[in-house]
Amino acid sequence: MKPSLISVLLVVCISVFSCQTKNDKVIQLKPKEFNQFLKSNPQLIDVRTPKEFNLEHIVNAQNKNYFAEDFSTLIEELDKEQPVFIYCRSGKRSGKSITKFLNAGFTNIYELEGGILNWKDKGFKTNKK
């Protein structure tokens, strides 16, 4: 029997000890751990503005603008049964968006610590236009 993605994620987080938990449904990951999870092609959501997203973003990310009036509707389009990985520029918007993801019914939320700035600072690549 193949382990589920959620089981693998939890085991890795527990073994790494570098994960920080905001609550039992949200795990904050350092760039290295966040990158490991991206290999399974999860729901990756960039909550920055379309202008920021179009300049550069993490490969395979979808843009759902936190400042959009219909942000809550936009995230309703996502699969709540699957883990969601979110990031922004520095971690402020993604941190604020967590409440909206929780209110929408998401139960497995992973946030990139320090946003795309920390991601790039640690040497990870982005899609640049």
Rank of each mutant, 00 (worst) to 15 (best):
P3Y: 12
P3I: 01
L5S: 11
S7T: 10
V8E: 14
L9P: 00
C13Y: 02
I14M: 10
S15D: 10
S15E: 09
V16S: 13
Q20Y: 14
I27K: 14
L29K: 06
K30H: 12
P31D: 07
K32V: 15
F34E: 08
Q36T: 14
F37A: 06
P42S: 05
Q43K: 07
L44T: 06
D46P: 03
R48E: 07
T49E: 13
E52N: 10
E52M: 05
F53M: 08
E56Q: 11
V59F: 14
N60F: 01
N60Y: 02
K64F: 13
F67S: 11
S72E: 13
I75C: 07
I75D: 06
I75F: 14
E76S: 13
D79Y: 01
E81F: 04
Y87W: 10
Y87N: 04
C88T: 06
R89C: 06
R89M: 09
G91A: 10
K92S: 09
K92G: 06
K92P: 00
S97K: 03
S97Y: 02
I98A: 06
I98Y: 04
I98G: 03
T99G: 08
F101K: 02
N103M: 05
N103F: 00
G105V: 01
T107N: 15
T107H: 15
T107W: 07
I109Q: 07
E111Y: 06
E111L: 10
L112K: 09
L112P: 07
G115D: 02
G115P: 02
N118G: 04
W119S: 03
D121W: 00
F124D: 00
K125A: 13
N127C: 08
N127L: 08
K129A: 13
